[in-house]
């Protein structure tokens, strides 16, 4: 099986294989295109949330169950900024629409980075090298974060306005694709390309990749890995908040439970993709996005279970995930 898969592009061919199987099962080209676009957009948003978590685990060996708190806060902060800039959002100007949306995403991302810094210093730093305490304290932090969300924004679901230029769908023949999904897909791709270049073309990126493999050796070469930890944690939290901001617009209605709901799916992506690997996170996120949409259409009752089954299948086949970082 591995040899056959390698001939067609290795594990990177899996989303294509999944899409081909789904095409045969769905039967309608227009429905398939719509579902595939939705799956890819969902995958890209989950990638934003999961990539940071994967790097944090890979480099720092930290199990951060509080990661989804950054997703929630990102979503709520973006919703508040969008509400405050409602006039720009509804204006008949793409520039104003885009400015409002970018302001919301930027505010969420900046909050994620700052909160990530505080979280690492106060919550995570004291429990390095102790997985049990990491799980307990970060789960506790997630609960506290959820209560903070309730205290600030209340328990009533909040409607999230979309910019006027991203409402509606693009129609090609009998294919309809939501504009917002195309935007989410493009933003995810831009972030992935930026991360790819940062990790592969810069010295900091080289250090992060090396640190994921063997922290001790990086220190033995004269680099302060603790400083790298803070930077990666801030970047990972910022990406999670950015993903949350995008998810808020995607869902249109958000509640404080959003983070907890997404936590499982984000962990599934990280596990499927392989810890510490950005390519793995992207692959895992796209697989989960496509699987969710295809199965929700074909077998609605299996929608929730499908990703669990996918994770089980991947782990039985590749216990370290599809594309794990090489560990020294």
């Amino acid at each position: 099986m591995n040899a056959a898969l390698d001939r067609v592009g290795g594990v990177y061919a899996l989303p294509v294989i999944l899409a081909i199987i789904a095409f045969a099962a769905i039967g309608s080209a227009s429905t398939w295109v719509t579902l595939t676009a939705a799956g890819l957009a969902m995958g890209m948003m989950i990638f934003l949330m999961a990539s940071g978590l994967s790097l944090i685990f890979g480099l720092m060996d930290v199990l951060n169950f509080g990661h989804s708190a950054f997703v929630s806060f990102g979503a709520f902060i973006a919703a508040s900024v969008l509400a405050a800039l409602g006039v720009w959002l509804a204006a008949d100007s793409v520039l104003l629409n885009l400015t409002a949306l970018m302001a919301a995403i930027a505010a969420a991302t900046a909050f994620g980075a700052l909160a990530g810094w505080g979280f690492e210093r106060v919550i995570v730093k004291p429990v390095y090298k102790d997985h049990l305490r990491q799980i307990l304290i970060t789960m506790g932090a997630l609960i506290v974060a959820e209560q903070l969300l309730l205290a600030i924004w209340g328990g009533t679901p909040i409607a999230v306005a979309r910019p006027a230029f991203l409402t509606g769908s693009i129609i090609i023949g009998d294919i309809a694709i939501e504009s917002y999904r195309i935007f989410a897909l493009l933003l995810g791709l831009v972030v992935y390309i930026a991360m790819y270049f940062a990790l592969n073309r810069t010295r900091i990126g080289l250090l992060i990749r090396a640190g994921v493999e063997n922290r001790e050796m990086v220190e033995s070469l004269g680099f302060r890995i603790d400083r790298l930890f803070i930077g990666v944690f801030m970047a990972g939290s910022a990406l999670a908040a950015m993903g949350g901001a995008m998810w808020a617009g995607y869902q249109s209605l958000i509640t404080p439970a959003l983070g907890q709901e997404l936590m499982i799916i984000v962990f599934i992506v990280v596990i499927i993709g392989g810890l510490g690997s950005i390519q793995g996170s992207l692959l895992g996120a796209i697989l989960v996005g496509l699987m969710t949409n295809y199965v929700a259409f074909l077998f609605p009752k299996l929608a929730l279970a499908s990703n669990m089954l996918l994770m089980m299948a991947v782990l039985l086949w590749r216990p370290y995930g599809l594309k794990p970082a090489v560990k020294g």
């Binding site: 990749r209 090396a210 493999e213 020294g328």
Partner: peptide, 24 residues
């Protein structure tokens, strides 16, 4: 002294497992 500071004094270390970064 922290390990990175020791390394920066000019001491290099080749561990038994070689410490190669295989993904690089």
């Amino acid at each position: 002294m922290p390990t990175p500071d020791i390394a920066r004094l000019g001491i290099a270390y080749v561990p038994e497992n070689m410490g190669i970064f295989g993904g690089l």
